[in-house]
Design a protein around this nucleic acid. Structure first.
Length: 522
RNA sequence: GCGCCAUUAGCUCAAUUGGCAGAGCAGCUGACUCUUAAUCAGCGGGUUUCAGGUUCAAGUCCUGAAUGGCGCACCA
């Protein structure tokens, strides 16, 4: 591809590429066996090795700092594992290689070989006896001290972000470790990982707008899945007892600090389980991951200056058995606790005026509104919005908008109105509510868990109702599957990106996704 | 889709009331064999995101656009 850029930086560096070629050297390197990670090399050094008495080592990395002093240079190399100093001493290098030294810029990737040692000031250092350009960088890296801080550039050019900002690399690697631990935990619990269609003729299992594509040979529309749920349940019908899938879902909705159009979801189903077995599973899993990766159940979110912004306590009530320690509370009780609204399945408009006043207090707090209430369009819109809802929707709305964001420590919210959860079973003692939990941590919904609905007729009714709302399409084949008999089951979903945000303290979902979606330029 | 805010050198940021667009790092030239964001001397570097407008004069004020951030809406 043609390079349109003609910045002086690039021109200078292209000249150096040319000079390397004139010296008979390859500016873009080649296969180089025997290179060891910088952190490993650093760990090999022992004080008795002295100034340069360590073993010969072979290293490679990006030059992130350069200090030239006439006939001696110190470079700081960086690789995936960390930083290490390399010394280029004119006496130890051939004339040709010394000329290479003069052509090294910040950002270049170089390979060196030489004994491991230490400088007079005590810095562990490779005293290079050979030096090769592995990849000449044609573009300059960001400022060496500030790194790259322009948010847009960081997301658009993550490759720069990763090498310029070690904290970014650390967070994204932590994400990878979390995913590994979640998988391992599920396997240890006897769940098997399956792969179900990401391209579906009917996008079911959730209420969200799907991405649409087209299959040419069949001449049919296909939808990127918004959830794997209906296929995983088909597997229960087929006889799988404990399955999970950990992969991408796609939802054609707005982008926000908590929403990326493609995101990673864990879904798991256990025959003869329930929302209670799923609650135990998710609580145990998150605690396991936290213990394994951080060695603690107290997760601290820190600011850039190191001060603690927020602490999430995953311990719960330690007088109870492990896996049942997190708070469990009915949605109606939680709403009453915060607003004084005693939910009796009647409309909010019928509650005492003090309730609405309290709800508006919370609304003002959330949006940080200070002005008078009567004239504010904010309040009018919100009230009008609530007025048009059914009591069940009002309960859900008050919880989701005003209370969920305040739930920092893990909380299982149970007895959610069943009308808004078409794929779950109704509670036996009161069919107004569904047999489910919604787990909130860090002010976000992290995981829903259901006692799954396996009655094909009730499921079909729920779909009919939903079709009326244009929320979910009727999936006749799924109903057909249920007619063959699906064992009663517990099912759960868990938003992996949000879990990672909770565990790492990331404020935006983009900080835990390697390549978040950005609008293309032009 | 709506609202608020931002956009200045490769990067990080200044620029008073509307009055000559600047610094640090990076770059170039030179010095330097123990530096740690090396140091020292000198030199370059700009369509102030874009398109219009007001004005003697616009980075600064106005209108529109683009991209981004945050909030709202959407997303059970």
């Amino acid at each position: 591809m043609e390079t349109p850029t003609t910045s002086t930086y690039e021109q200078e560096r292209r000249t150096k590429v040319q000079k390397l070629r004139e010296l008979g050297l390859e500016p873009f390197g080649g296969q180089t066996p025997g290179i060891q990670p910088l952190a490993l090399i650093k760990s090999v050094y022992k004080p008795e090795m002295g100034h340069d008495g360590g073993p010969p080592v072979k290293a490679a990395g990006r030059v992130i700092l350069k200090r030239d002093m006439g006939k001696l240079s110190f470079l700081t190399l960086r690789d995936e594992t960390g930083d290490l100093q390399v010394a280029l001493d004119k006496k130890r290098l051939s004339d040709l290689q010394w000329q290479v030294r003069c052509l090294i810029d910040l950002g270049d990737i170089i390979a060196v070989e030489g004994p491991l040692g230490v400088t007079n000031k005590g810095e562990i250092t490779i005293w290079a006896t050979s030096l090769a350009m592995a990849s000449k960088a044609l573009l300059p890296p960001p400022a060496k001290w500030e790194g790259l801080s322009d948010v847009e550039l960081r997301y658009r050019q993550r490759y720069v972000d990763l090498f310029a900002n070690p904290q970014v690399m650390a967070t994204l690697k932590l994400r990878i470790r979390i995913v590994e631990e979640v998988r391992q935990f599920m396997r240890d619990r006897g769940f098997i990982e399956v792969e179900t269609p990401m391209m579906q003729p009917i996008a079911g299992g959730a209420a969200a707008r799907p991405f649409v594509t087209h299959h040419n040979a069949l001449n049919i529309p296909l939808y990127l899945r918004i959830a794997p749920e209906l296929y995983l349940k088909r597997l229960l019908v087929g006889g799988f007892a404990k399955v999970f899938e950990l992969n991408r879902n796609f939802r054609n909705e707005g982008i926000s600090p908590r929403h990326n159009p493609e995101f990673t979801m864990l879904e798991a189903y256990e025959a003869f389980g329930s929302w209670q077995t799923m609650a135990e599973l998710v609580e145990s899993m998150i605690c396991h991951v936290a213990e394994k990766l951080f060695g603690t159940l107290k997760i601290e979110h820190k600011n850039a200056d190191g001060t603690v912004r927020r602490t999430i306590n995953l311990e719960g009530d330690t007088t109870k058995p492990a896996g049942q320690r997190w708070r469990r509370v009915r949605m109606a009780d939680l709403v009453e606790e915060h607003t004084g609204w005693h939910f009796d399945k009647n409309k909010l408009q019928d509650a005492p005026p003090a309730v609405m006043s309290r709800i508006l207090d919370l609304y003002a707090e959330k949006l940080q509104l200070t002005g008078p209430r009567d004239q504010s369009a904010h309040y009018r819109t919100f009230i009008h919005h609530l007025d048009r809802m059914s009591p069940a929707e009002q309960l859900q709305e008050v919880y989701e908008k005003l209370i969920e964001p305040t739930l920092i420590d893990p909380t299982f919210v149970t007895h959610v109105p069943s009308v808004i959860i078409p794929l779950a079973r109704e509670a036996r003692d009161d069919p107004f509510f569904a047999d489910v939990y919604e787990l909130a941590i860090n002010g976000q919904e992290i995981s829903p868990g259901y006692s799954e609905l396996n009655d094909p007729d009730i499921q079909a009714q729920h779909f009919q109702h939903q079709v009326g709302d244009e929320q979910q399409k009727m999936d006749d084949d799924f109903i057909n599957a249920l007619k063959h008999g699906m064992p009663p089951a517990g099912g759960m979903g868990m938003g992996i990106d949000r879990l990672v945000m909770t565990l790492t303290g990331a404020e935006s979902i983009r900080d835990v996704i390697l390549f978040p979606l950005m609008k293309p330029i032009e």
